[in-house]
Simulated scan of single mutants.
Amino acid sequence: MSGSNTSFVRTSMLTPEPAPAGERGAGAWIRKNLLATPKDVVLTIVALALLAWVLPHMINWLFIQAVWQGTDRTFCATTVQGGIWPDGWSGACWAFVSAKYDQFIFGRYPLMERWRPTLVGILFVALLVPMLIPKAPRKGLNAILLFLVLPVLSFWLLYGGFGLEIVETPLWGGLMVTLILSFVSIAVSLPFGILLALGRRSKMPVIRMVCVGFIEIIRGIPLITVLFMASVMLPLFLPTGWTIDKLVRALVGMSIFTSAYMAEVIRGGLQAIPKGQFEGADSLGLGYWQKTRLIIMPQALKLVIPSIVNTFIGTFKDTSLVSIIGMFDLLNIVRLNFSDANWASAVTPLTGLIFAGFVFWLFCFGMSRYSNFIERHLDTGHKR
């Protein structure tokens, strides 16, 4: 409309105003999350009272009254009788952890050869960190080095041969075994879980029945049973005179068990993909594997990241069950040292278990935080 008044139309946006003072800062967060309703006020008061009663005792036992250095149990004894330490013992006996630290990490691995697992750990971190950074270049080469080259190199370094002293796997233990079992199980379970999930949804009856049978049988029995069968039953199927290393049996058992659960996690993601995605891929003339690799599977994996990481965390903690076949991971090597007469005391077991629990929590918390980071990084579905 020519000649009409358009002066009311704004040609520039107003600068954004800050939120009201009462809606930002620590005070606003406390009112919103802790004091929003009378019930919240009561629960907050009860929680604060409980923390005020528990925390001083915990801090006192864990740090203030703790013993940090010593060579035997006598250093954890105190001359103060009565009070909160009626048996004459100090707080946490961190001297026990310090004295047994190398054994907690390497088990009974020979002292002069511990540079080998240390080198493996350094190589593992050097390859894993770039793999976890989304913008790091050369992901394909990194994956080949991490999942193909490093396992072979690590086996040679840890076991020996070709110029290195052979260290039998019964001498391996501690955190080293925990990390080996969890990393191999996780690395194997994800691709096998994807194949099992795809097989369960296959239109070919034989493949579908085999995958369904495998998944349901493995998911229907405890991990201890799988480990026991891998340790006791597996050698019975081998020719006379053949044997399989105990560590390999544990790796096979845990990988099989984790793969079955991972398959159901992946299948949940596949079923959440809208049918239109499959039809759109078919309309482009893509083959089955092209459609799965380029369109379907990336979306399915993104949807089930929390469940995948939850399975990884469960696998990491389940490594403690390998004690059923006579292996000593971190938790079991800590418990084994409770029988050391030089460190037998009232505070040694609890201190050792707190240390083991903290290490497990540290790794599991790291996986959880990284999962949240990846979710935010891949959360593009609702961005404009």
Rank of each mutant, 00 (worst) to 15 (best):
G3P: 02
S4E: 13
F8S: 14
S12Q: 13
S12V: 10
K32L: 11
A47S: 15
V54R: 05
L62T: 14
F63Y: 09
F75V: 05
A77D: 07
T78H: 01
T79Q: 14
T79A: 12
G91P: 03
F96S: 13
K100A: 10
D102G: 10
F106I: 05
R108V: 07
T118R: 00
L119A: 15
L123C: 05
L127A: 10
P130F: 08
L132W: 08
K135D: 02
I144M: 12
L146R: 09
L157E: 04
L157C: 08
Y159I: 05
Y159N: 06
G160A: 03
S182R: 12
F183C: 02
V184E: 04
V188W: 10
L196W: 09
S202V: 04
M204V: 14
V206G: 00
I218D: 03
R219C: 12
G220D: 05
P222V: 07
V226N: 01
W242G: 03
D245T: 06
D245H: 02
R249D: 02
F257L: 05
T258P: 01
K275R: 14
Q277P: 08
E279P: 09
G280I: 09
G287Q: 08
Q290L: 03
I295L: 12
P298W: 14
G314V: 06
T315Y: 02
I325C: 07
F328K: 03
N332G: 03
R335N: 11
L336Q: 13
N337E: 11
A344H: 11
A346E: 08
V347C: 06
A356S: 15
F358D: 00
W361I: 00
R369Q: 13
R376M: 07
R376V: 06
H377L: 10
